[in-house]
């Protein structure tokens, strides 16, 4: 569904990604783990068009999307719940969700489908948001904003969902809730690329994993295998061997 080859990206003169290769097959959850500064978020940004890649190819459902602006990539079917949530603070929770469905509500976008039904399903998945539907998004707590960012991305009805650090800055109980929701999305067949600091939890929910080191893929394999890899355990799972 999503295929990344030799992806390179830079901030100004500083090369951050030195040729990333990864695949996210349809219906699977793939996780990208690595230490701070390894290039996880940059990879996500380069895929979704927030950052223009300096080289390599990205295929989404067979279509080449590398170098396209973010809004065109969204229209092709990729949703990105970005690092730091980035909800629209001056607009209501409901308006944020409708903006998530912008490509379906407007001319020349994605198939319309059942927007009202999807809105309902998103609010079922995140009951806290239902209570706060008409509140301004800026007044939500950090955890609620994270839920909103995820729900908003789902409203695109995407072929692939990118989740960047959905647990960042959340209380442990909310982290658990976020992973529970990822699990439910997986059961529903959502194709996801997940970046997480909690590598153990990410590898528990994922089918496949990539370990990123200094802008390169260092190790990759089925999640099960990575969980048992002594090097991965020592470096990222905090377990001595």
């Amino acid at each position: 569904m999503l295929e990344v080859n030799h992806l390179k990206a830079a901030y100004g003169q500083v090369q951050v990604l030195h040729g990333i290769e990864l695949k996210v097959p349809k219906g699977q959850v793939v996780t990208l783990i690595g230490s701070n500064g390894a290039g996880k978020t940059t990879t996500m940004r380069a895929i979704s068009g927030m950052l223009k890649p300096t080289g390599g190819s990205i295929l989404l459902g067979g279509k080449s999307i590398a170098g396209l602006p973010a809004h065109r990539i969204a229209r092709i079917g990729l949703a990105h719940s970005p690092e730091g949530r980035r909800v629209f603070p001056t607009q209501t929770v409901r308006d944020n969700l409708l903006l998530g469905a912008f490509t379906r509500l407007t001319f020349g976008g994605r198939p319309r489908g059942d927007i009202r039904g999807d809105l309902d399903r998103a609010l079922d998945l995140f009951p806290r948001l239902r209570e706060r539907q008409f509140q301004l998004a800026g007044t939500l707590s950090g955890g609620e904003q994270q839920m909103l960012a995820m729900a908003r991305a789902l409203m695109l009805n995407p072929d692939v969902l990118l989740l960047d650090e959905p647990s960042m800055g959340l209380a442990p109980i909310l982290v658990e809730e976020v992973f529970h929701i990822i699990e439910r999305l997986k059961e529903q067949g959502m194709t996801m690329l997940l970046v997480e600091q909690f590598a153990a939890a990410a590898l528990a929910v994922a089918d496949y994993g990539y370990v990123l080191e200094n802008g390169r893929i260092a190790v990759h394999g089925p999640a099960e295998q990575l969980r048992n890899d002594p090097k991965v355990r020592a470096a990222y799972l905090g377990i001595a061997h």
């Binding site: 927030m50 980035r86 603070p89 607009q91 903006l99």
Partner: peptide, 16 residues
């Protein structure tokens, strides 16, 4: 309004 508050995030919504 979304573009005014966060241009990058608005782009991710498919807004030109």
């Amino acid at each position: 309004v979304a573009t005014s508050s966060d241009r990058d995030a608005a782009g991710l919504m498919g807004i030109n």
